[in-house]
Design a protein around this nucleic acid. Sequence first.
DNA 1: GAATATATGTACCGATCTGTACATATTGGA
DNA 2: TCCAATATGTACAGATCGGTACATATATTC
Lengths: 200, 200
Amino acid sequence: MDYLQISTERCSMRPSKRDELVRKVLPVFYREGFHATGMDALVSETGISKTTMFKHFRTKDDLILAVLRHRDETFRNWLFRRLDETGLPPRERLLALFDVLKEWFSEPGFRGCMFIKASAEFQDPEHPAYVQSAEHKRLLLTALTRMCREAEVQNPAQLARQLLILKEGAIVAAHMGFDPDPAGAAKTAAESLVAIDTAQ
Amino acid sequence: MDYLQISTERCSMRPSKRDELVRKVLPVFYREGFHATGMDALVSETGISKTTMFKHFRTKDDLILAVLRHRDETFRNWLFRRLDETGLPPRERLLALFDVLKEWFSEPGFRGCMFIKASAEFQDPEHPAYVQSAEHKRLLLTALTRMCREAEVQNPAQLARQLLILKEGAIVAAHMGFDPDPAGAAKTAAESLVAIDTAQ
DNA sequence: GAATATATGTACCGATCTGTACATATTGGA
DNA sequence: TCCAATATGTACAGATCGGTACATATATTC
């Protein structure tokens, strides 16, 4: 495991090969899946030699784990920065979550949530990829709960859980294509939940 | 492909080897995943010889497809039969969906939704396993919409979409373990949605 | 420009993958 | 009891899997 490895970029050094590797490999795993993507496929799709890959990551699992950690960081950063940029007051910012989701769904390369897919491929609760995926969701819940507190709703913990469930459901709906506008439907639902909470 | 193959059981003949095979293989795929489960593992876990497997299914993909079709049928039958058994009036029956989900989540072997996982492993929208998974969700949406109409809500189509999103979100939450009672949270949310719809 | 570290290309290892060949049991119906 | 169909066990083919050895090339640093 390389849990303790620290990205050189976070230390403000120049971009390391290791980080370049993770960035190049991530979209392939995202698009094709983890088991379905062999190391040879990664080599031919990224142009990075296999020798280099195994110099930076002892095993394929270690590489997958680094990819998931990178995704966790960039996704949460992206999501909450987008919410901040709206400049909306706390209560409306909660609902803006679903506008941001809608943007994401409409991106051409959208293929669902990487962590839902990782937990589908690595189901053993002891597996680091599963643990990392669950942790990502837990961090989202924590951040959403804080946002709900800032919005001064009656029951921040419960509303946050419900909003997160709506978010995950909308992602599944978008990925599986059984709803033409899952983010819109989820946002309407969220508006109802916030209104009910306020009315109490 | 064996799309057109008809289960002998549906024709009220005696249980065929083919159906026995699907039934025995399903839990292994469900528990371990599709790519992660090799044909040899299926042989050793079910006791059915490899020769027999490939006599009834030309390829592993055909076997997976038969498993998904079987799951689609049994899951929807199970779900709506449970809802019928409640004997509740239409409106309360909508909410009972989340009580039934709660039961499912608490089963010892629960490992999330097989179709979410299948669409995570077979992401190509042309892949039969993806198509079958999307179709399963579409059928659920159709049935939910009918239930909403029977409950005489204001906007059956929209409420059905929202309920389905809540259901999928609750399944993800249950599978990834970031919520102690996802069905409960989703049910509370659903109650709000139904109440709002009624008030209009 | 020499020395050191890092990246590449190729060729390979043993294991496992899907799928097959074939000879032997086992079953069910006439 | 005989026949036909079906299931089994073993052994294997060909491809691909994750991962390594090793010699060469490239870049950085002093």
